[in-house]
Design a protein around this nucleic acid. Structure first.
Lengths: 153, 153
DNA sequence: TCCTTATACTTCACATGTTAAGCAGTTTTC
DNA sequence: GAAAACTGCTTAACATGTGAAGTATAAGGA
């Protein structure tokens, strides 16, 4: 008998707002990771691009943007910088010359390797403090939520 | 016998990376909300500030920044714009004149009201597609995660 | 083939994110 | 009761976020 709509309900408190809760939770988790990355003069965005390229191999930019949660205009600039820093390369798809295909370099892979131990340590700390089960549960829920399409219907 | 560390384990896939998963899930949820807000010429950040001010009443900027997940330099600009648009006011704390206290205006509250129905509808759609229980579960997990302190120990 | 439409970016302009420096007001220390 | 240290916010400079317009290539239709 609690959450029925017998009163004109206001907006949920910000702690029960999914977008805000997701953002705040992310800030918590990103704290130590940002600290780690700052030692390599690399930011969150480049780190995401590196991991996506490492995971998928050579990939067209539109796909990279989707996977790394970046818009194409941002990715254009970021990839350009990463090329200059030797972290990524790019070329034109011979089958469709509109497409630009990016790939991680050895230096990029080395950067990932260089942070692997600490990254895993941060995750281990999270599992210790939050609980291994809860982390799994949360990842499962997020993974499923990602796949929804919430537009209109 | 699966996830033991008997092999030099690589980084988790990006779908099992909590920061990336949080970001992707948030993008999914924010889609319809951004659509809603764009009709009022308001962006995510101003919306968060409005909701925090509505929820807490007059609040010093440092606290607003924490709650709305903004850095102070961003908040400085955003609050200035919101003052000009009549959505918020601010004054100096008489007890500590370093502090600036912001408050929501009637126009600000009206803007929240104007979007309440649609906001609740979006949330209802989420509950329908994702499941009410899972939404609750997710919010609980996120709320708890927010409160952790993951620095060093 | 020519024309239209669509796709895959890129560029532009302006807002926000981020770090470092600056400044006024407050507290601490001697 | 000042000098030193700290706090709360602002400014500055540059990177990224974002929507709209622009460019080049590709695909489809008359």
């Amino acid at each position: 008998m609690f959450s029925s709509d017998d009163t004109p309900k206001p907006l949920r408190g910000t702690r029960r707002s999914l977008p805000i809760a997701l953002l705040r939770a992310r800030e918590t988790v990103m704290g130590p990771i940002r600290e780690m990355l700052s030692q390599s003069n690399i930011n969150e965005q480049k780190w995401r691009v590196l991991r996506v390229l490492d995971e998928r191999g050579p990939t067209e930019l539109t796909q990279v943007a989707k996977d790394a949660c970046l818009l194409l205009p941002s990715l254009t600039r970021i990839i350009r910088a990463m090329e200059e820093e030797g972290l990524a390369t790019r070329g034109t798809d011979p089958d469709d010359r509109r497409k630009s295909i990016a790939a991680i370099t050895e230096a990029g892979r080395a950067l990932i390797l260089a942070h692997m131990a600490e990254s895993n340590a941060i995750f281990a700390r999270l599992e210790r403090d939050f609980g291994q089960e809860k982390v799994e549960q949360l990842l499962d829920l997020l993974d499923e939520l990602q796949t929804l399409d919430l537009y209109k219907p």
